[in-house]
């Protein structure tokens, strides 16, 4: 027997007539008497409508008031990238200076500094970090006996010498 023939037989499937009639009556009753609005429905509906209206009003006010995001975009676009880079570089220098002040160079570092005429600073645990200021800060070192005789040398010069 062919499947098509068998499948057509399935068309005889029907729901129960009494149930169908009952549901039809129920459906038509609901259709003729739509559900009454409750206070809850009214409140929710009003809230939803009110929110939509308020949002619309805010948008209209912003548009009429000349609000434009372009103003903020222009501010951002007006930043000077070179200035920012210079500032960032200055911050890096301050960090290096702080590290230099407290760093224990060890023997090799001490000899190198001594060769340059720069002496290792005496350990001063409570010494505050150099105040932030210009990038080209000067390192003044003291000997153990407290003599302040070493010539002053800028950090940039010291670093340049170390690199050779």
């Amino acid at each position: 027997m062919e499947i098509e023939h068998l499948l057509r037989h399935l068309k005889k499937i029907e729901s129960r007539a009494e149930y169908r009639a009952h549901l039809r009556a129920h459906l038509l009753t609901r259709a003729r008497h739509p559900r009454r609005l409750t206070w809850r429905d009214v409140v929710i509906g009003a809230f939803q409508s009110g929110s939509a209206i308020a949002l619309t009003v805010v948008l209209i006010v912003l548009m009429v008031g000349g609000f434009s995001i372009a103003k903020y975009v222009q501010k951002v676009a007006g930043l000077d990238p070179q200035g920012l880079r210079a500032e960032a570089h200055a911050i890096d220098m301050q960090l290096e200076l702080t590290g230099l002040d407290y760093q224990d160079f060890g023997t090799a570092g001490t000899h190198a500094l001594a060769g340059m005429g720069v002496h290792r600073a005496a350990p001063r645990p409570s010494k505050p970090a150099p105040a932030a200021g210009t990038g080209a800060a000067t390192v003044t070192t003291t000997t153990d006996s407290g003599e302040a005789s070493a010539p002053a040398m800028s950090v940039d010069e010291a670093l340049e010498l170390l690199s050779h």
Binding site: L10, K11, I13, E14, S15, R20, R24
Partner: peptide
């Protein structure tokens, strides 16, 4: 109704 019922059934 009959065909929708059949489809679902």
């Amino acid at each position: 109704h009959p065909q929708i019922y059949r489809f679902i059934y």
